[in-house]
Amino acid sequence: MSDRIALHTLAADACVLPSDGVVPAIDYSRFKYGDGVASIAFGRALADRFHAIVAPRDGERIFVTSSGYGAVPPAARSLVSPFVARMRRLAPGVELKPLRVHRLGVSPGDYATMDAAARELAVGAKSMHVDPRIDVSGARVIALDDIRVTGTHELAMDGCLNEAGASWIDHLYIVDAHSAAGRPSLESDLNGVAASSVEDLLVIVDSPRFVPNARLAKKITTLGRFDQERFLAAVPPTVAAWILDAVERDGLSHVPAYATGFRRLQLTAEALAKTTATA
């Protein structure tokens, strides 16, 4: 069995998030590209909402996970720590443990731009699994995610968590946009509100508690040469190295949608390194 809670539900005729409130459009967009302050705010807000609605029992065993991923965490993973910390204050008698759901395979492109059919191909029914050494049987699992659009990812998560023996699954979202799922570009549009330019991305990288994630790595990989140069020249070398490593570890360097951009990014990074060394 499962249940669903969201901080903000997008109306069927809506195409933007509000400018203020619990989920401001700018904060949501910045969160998707690594703004850790926004992650903390959303993680805590989800814990407050869950505790108010569900009121878990003392002694209850609960695992907290994000959306499933391969090698590099998505933005949703940054919600887990602030959520768990807040819940431990709100419900000290509850046994809370972080959990990771592993995802097999690599998306052939940006999941946010895919329609329902493409998402089903990218996230198959058997694409997720829990480490069999972790005993989830009989426990409640809270799955944190940024947005629900078609529900494809939710079904895949339900499949693997039920197979692992979870007694109940709570899906907690920052935004539930399922009623507006007919617009393929909706999720991508929401993501890009405050992350449409290199300048926007540099502000996020320079923000307090910045947490790099898979979406940022993909974004930088798909930029043109000039924008990649501007980005790499402005960020700390550790951030540039993290992005290059993340793309390789996630297997994106072999995906047609990212391969050319990744090679261009490598060459740009090498050229900048040589310039710095001879300066």
Rank of each mutant, 00 (worst) to 15 (best):
L10V: 09
L10R: 02
V16H: 15
L17A: 04
D20P: 05
G21P: 02
G21I: 04
F31T: 00
Y33L: 14
V37Q: 08
A38V: 08
S39N: 05
R44A: 11
A45I: 02
L46T: 03
A47C: 09
A47E: 01
D48N: 14
D48Q: 12
F50V: 07
A52I: 10
P56W: 01
R57L: 13
D58K: 10
E60T: 05
E60A: 12
R61F: 11
I62W: 00
I62T: 02
G68E: 03
G70A: 14
A71D: 11
R77D: 08
V80T: 06
P82I: 10
P82Q: 09
M87E: 03
L90S: 07
P92E: 12
K97E: 15
K97T: 13
P98L: 11
P98V: 09
R100W: 07
V101W: 00
L104N: 12
A112Q: 00
T113S: 15
A116H: 15
A116L: 15
A118M: 12
R119C: 05
L121R: 15
V123A: 02
G124R: 12
A125S: 14
S127E: 04
H129S: 11
D131A: 15
D131W: 12
R133V: 08
G138Y: 14
R140Y: 10
V141D: 01
A143E: 01
A143V: 10
L144N: 03
L144F: 06
D146I: 04
R148A: 05
V149I: 14
T150L: 04
L155Y: 07
L155S: 09
A156C: 10
M157A: 13
C160A: 13
S167E: 10
H171R: 12
Y173F: 13
Y173K: 01
Y173H: 08
D176V: 03
H178K: 08
A181C: 08
P184F: 04
P184V: 05
S188Q: 13
S188Y: 12
D189K: 04
D189A: 11
N191L: 10
G192S: 13
V193T: 04
A195P: 00
A195H: 01
L201I: 09
V203N: 02
D206I: 04
P208F: 13
V211P: 00
V211K: 03
P212G: 09
P212I: 07
P212K: 06
P212H: 06
N213Q: 13
L216Y: 03
A217G: 10
K218Y: 03
K218L: 08
I220Q: 02
G224S: 05
F226R: 15
F226Y: 12
Q228Y: 07
A233R: 15
V235N: 01
P236F: 09
P236M: 10
V239Y: 02
W242A: 05
D245K: 13
A246V: 09
R249K: 15
A257P: 01
Y258E: 02
A259Y: 02
G261K: 00
G261Q: 01
R263G: 05
R264H: 08
L265G: 02
L267D: 11
L267V: 08
L267I: 07
A269M: 09
A269F: 06
A271P: 03
L272Y: 06
A273R: 12
T275N: 13
T278A: 14
T278K: 14
A279H: 11
